[in-house]
């Protein structure tokens, strides 16, 4: 909880949701050079260290709740006196992948911003993209693979390698499964924290839905309200009333 809180505050330093530099607004059409130039400008005006730190804290805030089960696998699979080291290796692998993904994601965000013309159109497009992605079998395939467990060695460097590899693989599939949602908070200016929190809940709900066969389906975010209704029915029913789906 502490980590998540600190992350929320620090991530608001990531100013991509503010209006992008004028160079973007000027370019009528999307071109690779415009994206590159804008990205360069953005990175130049925001120190890399700060940018990376802000991105990382945002990730830690949003992703940590998703890692409970994989972390417990790492924990339970390691010798008692190596558990901290093993968890650290796993987290390095996991967030390492996300850290490197920051740049391509930033480029996608800027491209989207250029295409859309203004921040609110970019936000709408990102949300739509995320909804379509959530409904797609591709997302389901990535999500399924983000549940896969692999061996964790017990001794020496082999154990560290296994933890790193498990973290990195999981991070990769998490990224593949949730990348459009990660764009959304970047286009929200005033309620950035709320947007991040909302996206974190959506990602949690997607993971909790669990694995399943590949097909187009109703996006989880739209079924969250029904889930809540079902939950209340269960609670009410266990205290006497009869339940329906």
């Amino acid at each position: 909880m502490m980590v998540a809180g600190v992350g929320l505050v620090a991530s608001s330093m990531l100013g991509i949701h503010a209006d992008l530099p004028s160079i973007c607004v000027a370019s009528e059409q999307l071109s690779l050079s415009a994206v590159v130039a804008s990205s360069r400008f953005f990175i130049a005006t925001n120190p890399t260290g700060t940018l990376a730190l802000a991105w990382l804290t945002m990730l830690i805030a949003m992703m940590t709740p998703l890692l409970a089960l994989p972390l417990s696998h790492v924990h339970a699979s390691s010798l008692a006196d190596r558990r901290l080291r093993a968890s650290t290796g796993f987290l390095l692998g996991y967030f390492g992948v996300w850290l490197f993904a920051g740049y391509p994601l930033l480029a996608v965000a800027i491209a989207l911003r250029l295409l859309a013309g203004n921040a609110s159109a970019a936000l709408m497009t990102a949300c739509l993209l995320a909804l379509i992605w959530s409904a797609s079998p591709m997302q389901m395939a990535a999500q399924n693979r983000a549940h896969r467990l692999r061996r964790i060695g017990l001794f020496g460097l082999a154990a560290d390698r296994d933890c790193l590899a498990f973290g990195a693989t999981l991070g990769g599939w998490c990224l593949a499964s949730s990348w459009p949602w990660m764009l959304v908070p970047l286009f929200v200016a005033h309620t950035h924290l709320a947007a991040m929190f909302g996206v974190a809940i959506i990602l949690m709900a997607e993971r909790l839905r669990g694995p399943g066969p590949l097909r187009w389906r109703f996006p989880v975010v739209l079924s969250i309200p029904t889930g809540w209704i079902r939950e209340t029915v269960i609670c009410r029913r266990s205290s006497g009333a009869t339940g329906h789906v």
């Binding site: 395939a141 399924n144 693979r145 549940h147 669990g210 694995p211 399943g212 066969p213």
Partner: peptide, 9 residues
């Protein structure tokens, strides 16, 4: 089965 309800573990 990776793409099934049981998660392929």
């Amino acid at each position: 089965k990776v793409d099934g309800q049981h998660g392929g573990n």
